[in-house]
Design a protein around this nucleic acid. Structure first.
Lengths: 154, 154
DNA sequence: TCAACTCGGACAACTTTTGTCCGGAACCTC
DNA sequence: GAGGTTCCGGACAAAAGTTGTCCGAGTTGA
């Protein structure tokens, strides 16, 4: 998985407490990561409709909807793409004892197992929202952490 | 995920019905894939203790234990490695408003969510054995498929 | 003893991913 | 309206991981 996913998720949590648009440069400085690369991840969030980009002076990014309605899976798919990790190449239809195409209408057992596992992974990520992440931060470290982020973003 | 995982799983299913050691070259020919590259995947299986490599004339690979005791996860981890897809870089401890290390004893919420999803994925793959895959093949396409594989391997 | 066949690991070529950079357009402040 | 700030998109370079190939070491069977 792309490392940019982690950055994007941290940014989403920060955006939940931001009172004004937060620019990519400022978010990058706060997390001490590459500004150019983080910008690309934020663009992906905007393209996916999770964040809205306001241009011009004092511009930046704002979440488009309530953090409780944005799942971790949404962010992961926006940044990393939505295609499953496993792709079946239909090995059974190749070679000297290849299976006939009419017998391969349903996915093979390996494909099915991989798809099921992938769906379990997605379901787990779909069950956690950005609001859940933010609440977990306050539960573990107190309200000061998110407060400092909000203050620093200005 | 590496495409070699798919090949390795197909080979494991084939080895279930093989009556004698099956060489990498023969398995590669059957599946119509690169022999040199498939050999590498089979080596991984041997290194992980899933298959035993018999050298010399008429040598090849044999499963070390009952197919019902080899899970799909075993094969995936053997070929692709066992490390989780997500790695936490402790972003919260970096930058101008970094959290104090003593407050970061437990994994952050993002890390926890990713770990849970990864575990769900692993659990799904752990619940399917090579024997399950083979049984599914016969259930869907009849006993002829595995029979042809066994005959072709000789 | 010999020859043939096998695995095993080291060695390149390629593709994908990751990361950087710059010009253009939009916007706010003055 | 001028200037500065910001996002957007694409072009570009670097790194990683993959796919694929080769040859040597060891083993087996005749």
């Amino acid at each position: 998985m792309s490392g940019g996913v982690e950055w994007a998720l941290h940014c989403c949590v920060a955006l939940t407490v931001a009172r004004s648009p937060a620019s990519a440069a400022r978010l990058a400085e706060m997390h001490d990561v590459s500004a150019s690369y983080l910008a690309k991840q934020l663009q992906s969030l905007a393209r996916a409709g999770l964040a809205h980009a306001v241009q011009g002076h004092a511009g930046g990014y704002v979440l488009t909807r309530d953090p409780a309605l944005i799942t971790v899976l949404d962010v992961v798919e926006a940044v990393d793409g939505a295609r499953p990790a496993f792709t079946c190449t239909e090995v059974r239809q190749r070679g000297p004892i290849a299976a006939a195409p009419e017998r391969c209408l349903s996915p093979c057992s390996i494909h099915a197992a991989m798809t099921a596992a992938d769906e379990a992974w997605r379901a787990a990520l779909r069950g956690v929202s950005i609001a859940d992440l933010a609440r977990d931060v306050t539960d573990k470290t107190g309200p000061g952490t998110l407060q400092r982020i909000a203050d620093w973003l200005g």
